[in-house]
Amino acid sequence: MSILNYLIRRIGLALLVILGVMIITFFVSRVLPADPVRLFVGVRASEETVEAKRAEFGLDQPVPVQFLNYAGGILQGDFGISFRTKRPIVDDLKIFVPATLELVILSMVLAIVIGIPVGVIAAANRGGWIDQISRIVTIAGVSIPSFWLALLLQLLFFSTLDWLPLGGRLSREFIISNPIETVTGFYVIDGLVTGNFEAWRNALWHLVLPTFVLATYPISLTARMTRSSMLEVMSETYISAAQAAGLSRREILFKLALKNAIVPTLTVLGLVFAFSITGAILVEIVFSWPGLGTYVTESILSADFPVVMAVTLIVTVIYVAINLFIDILQATLDPRVRLGSQ
């Protein structure tokens, strides 16, 4: 199969998956709850108000029509109205998505920059002390609850040592007197672009703990997966053949085996995103980070289903897009992926 055919097929599948995801979120938000309208207007509202609102939201129509309205709205960027804030959800998302992505992207970068080399080195020293230590540390890394780690670090670096801020994206004095102007929504970029270096430094300072906590799981996971795919590759005959041809261990490890092992390891990056974004939900609460996680948790507490569904949907679409990108990357790296794509 040519790469173009592979691409088209893969994109088609991704669209199918997004359709399925929309069906599920629709089902969960409109069909599972007993009466979403009652939730919106409150318990004390009269029957007439309920029916009026039901008609306004189109919830009195047959379920398939409701779904078409829902899907049509989403395609136009309309995620509905929040029960809690009564604002269009899409306006809230514009504020919260960049805040969360700032954390998630940093955590993914750390996972790649630290996780992959650690995995390769552990595999190269299989059974040695570096391998043993990295095994324990990385397993601990995937075992520690992020919200608890966040709590511990707050206790240490804020309560005890007072080195780092407790939470938030920016200290209060900056928010009041010298806020970072929004250009992209990413403070790390906006602070530099607008030349507001003091606030920028303050923003970086606030990023340290949340990023570290969020990156713990992804780094450990990447290191473990890299190690095991490296070991698998190292047991292949073509590695023996390369040795027989006189290639050195370093060349085999870093030039040959890494390219073979990177293909399965890339799959991990999709997972790393998934774990970062869901980890962010928990971590943001602890650090009062004004992102999707805080937004969604507040919505959960007030049973604000449309918001929860909208966030689920948007995060999932990003996830599907990332996986699509990874698959295409794998297909360009490994000619066999294109062939055995079914």
Partner: peptide, 23 residues
């Protein structure tokens, strides 16, 4: 497998949160 793909398209904790919210 396509149904499986759709479920796997959700980040793991997120769908659980979504479902747990409405229940």
């Amino acid at each position: 497998m396509r149904i499986t793909d759709i479920f796997l398209a959700f980040p793991p904790l997120l769908l659980a949160i979504t479902i747990a919210t409405v229940l």
